[in-house]
Write a protein that binds this DNA or RNA. Structure first.
Length: 492
RNA sequence: GGCCCCAUCGUCUAGCGGUCAGGACAUCACCCUUUCAAGGUGAAUACACGAGUUCGAAUCUCGUUGGGGUCACCA
């Protein structure tokens, strides 16, 4: 088995592209086959410099490795279509020689005109096949005059073309609804239709998995395979990923737009930048349109490979359930990563936020933060205070809890300072600290949340944070007392 | 509009003639609790509609409606 992912280098990789790549990859890996990356850069106008790196970077971040592709020759290269031009031209000519295709000299202007007239007559748009029956003499003449032309497929005017889709079964099309599609453009580049058939043939691709939007052109491709007399691959058209609200397909133009106040992510890189783990993204994606089999949703990629079955893919399109990714990312953070691993991934994020990371301290706070963050990026807000060079004190307002006043709060802090300052440094640990806190509660006639809350704000500078006494232990006696003192002064 | 695909809780899904229609996310309530989380328990919520076929339909057929895709010298 050989499968492929064949993106166009028109910019950063889209999450829908990732999903297609992932399913093709899963299919190949399940069967112990090969997964090939092929770059379809036959549209010079849309080519974006640097796209190929963006694509391979994204795949590598996600762990979707390819066996053959640009820079990784497997004997079927080159893997970039613009480097295969002579091949397409040769076979396009072959189609003409065998009466399966014809040269079309119609200008874009004429094509426009034809469509306008058809529209006026309320007919479906499409090429009127003006050049399909040009005489040999006319063709010679046009050629001699050097008229630019394209090569079009000569589709049968009647009958039906039946395709088999691995996901939805038989799909039937009436040939009279088909177009004489352009195979080779006037600039000598092939269109997708021609290029993918030729490449999939010579690269011996056995299973073509691609997005659902290709289904309408399946009959064209089938006709092409038949014209060449080559053995067809199996086709599987993956359901489309829709916007989170279910309206329209997820596309690049929605990227970054806010929807119901929520951010819509669509580029692979945006998921990385948002603090999602690649393992979680991959796990999440495999649960859309496919399921593990029992009721498990969290599983690692090896388990997915072992069970993957392309024919079990749900043919229905699905809205992109981004909120489920948030949950799943949290599961991975709190259950799947060791402290060392988590710290390793958190470190660059803290550093990018301009904080100076003390690795020992970072490792120490892992138990305090791992159940509190859903995105790696959450670490900055939740625990950034551990790494601030200079402590950012809270405001007096944050310090004073409801049902307490300024004086009362100050007295509480002063009492705390007094009691904690007599604790030895080696005893400055969570449990004794908590005991003292509890003593404060009963002695001052306050409740837990008042005392612990005030201490939390004083020590962390924020009202939502890691647990108070654990935090104090990690901060150490000096630092903790210093911060409590700052709070006292703030309330004077 | 033509053609093609699709249709189970708000969302992702299980189900492939007989189930109290299951799970997960999200939501809500309660419990736990040093904030926030996490965790625990529980609640609410779905077979788009209409005809058939059948002893029996979420499951099969047809139609309707709805949604999506596609109609380029883009992929």
């Amino acid at each position: 088995m050989r499968t492929r992912f064949a993106p166009s280098p028109t910019g950063p990789l889209h999450i829908g592209g990732v999903r297609s790549a992932l399913f093709s990859w899963l299919l190949a890996r399940h069967h112990g086959g090969k997964f090939i990356l092929r770059i379809e850069d036959t549209d010079q106008k849309r080519f974006v410099e640097g796209s190929i790196d963006l694509i391979t970077d994204a795949l590598s971040w996600l762990g979707i490795d390819y066996d053959e592709g640009p820079g990784k020759d497997g004997g079927y290269g080159p893997y970039i279509q613009s480097e295969r031009l002579p091949l397409y031209q040769k076979w396009a000519q072959w189609l003409i020689d065998n009466d399966k295709a014809y040269r079309c000299f119609c200008t874009p202007e004429r094509l426009d005109q034809v469509n306008k007239e058809k529209e006026a007559r309320k007919e479906p748009p499409g090429y009127d096949r003006f050049c399909r029956n040009l005489s040999q003499a006319e063709i010679e003449k046009n050629l001699a005059e050097g008229k630019p032309h394209v090569i079009r497929l000569k589709v049968p005017l009647e009958g039906q073309t039946t395709g088999q889709d691995l996901i939805r079964g038989e799909v039937v099309f009436d040939n009279n609804t088909l177009q004489d599609a352009v195979l080779l453009k006037s600039d000598g580049y092939p269109t997708y239709h021609l290029a993918h058939v030729i490449d999939d043939h010579f690269m011996e691709i056995s299973h073509v998995t691609r997005a659902n939007e290709w289904l309408p052109s399946l009959p064209l491709h089938l006709l092409l395979w038949e014209a060449f007399g080559w053995e067809k691959p199996y086709y599987a058209h993956l359901p489309v990923l829709l916007n989170p609200n279910g309206k329209g397909k997820l596309s690049k133009r929605h990227s970054g737009f806010s929807e119901d106040g929520k951010k819509v992510l669509v580029l692979a890189k945006e998921f990385k930048d948002a603090g999602y783990l690649p393992e979680a993204v991959v796990n999440f994606l495999t649960n859309i349109g496919w399921n593990f089999g029992d009721e498990r949703e969290i599983f690692d990629i090896q388990e997915a490979i072992a069970r993957f079955d392309i024919s079990a893919v749900n043919p229905a399109n699905s809205a992109f359930p981004i909120e489920k990714l948030d949950w799943m990312n949290g599961v991975y953070i709190r259950e799947k990563l060791s402290s060392e691993e988590l710290a390793k991934r958190l470190r660059p994020i803290l550093e990018n936020a301009g904080l100076e990371v003390n690795v020992d301290r970072l490792l120490k706070i892992m138990p305090l933060i791992r159940e509190r963050i859903k995105s790696l990026n959450d670490i900055v807000d939740l625990a950034g205070f551990f790494f601030h060079e200079t402590f950012k004190p809270p405001t007096a307002e944050m310090l004073i809890p409801k049902k307490m006043d300024k004086d009362g709060t100050r007295k509480l802090l002063e009492a705390s300072h007094a009691r904690y300052s007599v604790v030895s440094e080696t005893e400055f640990l969570t449990t004794p600290l908590l005991t003292i806190g509890a003593g404060l509660v009963s002695d001052l006639g306050l409740n837990n949340s008042q005392v612990f809350g005030v201490l939390r704000v004083a020590v962390t500078g924020q009202s939502i944070s890691t647990p108070t006494f654990e935090t104090m232990e990690i901060l150490g006696k000096d630092e903790s007392l210093k911060r409590i003192q700052i709070a006292v002064d703030l309330l004077k």
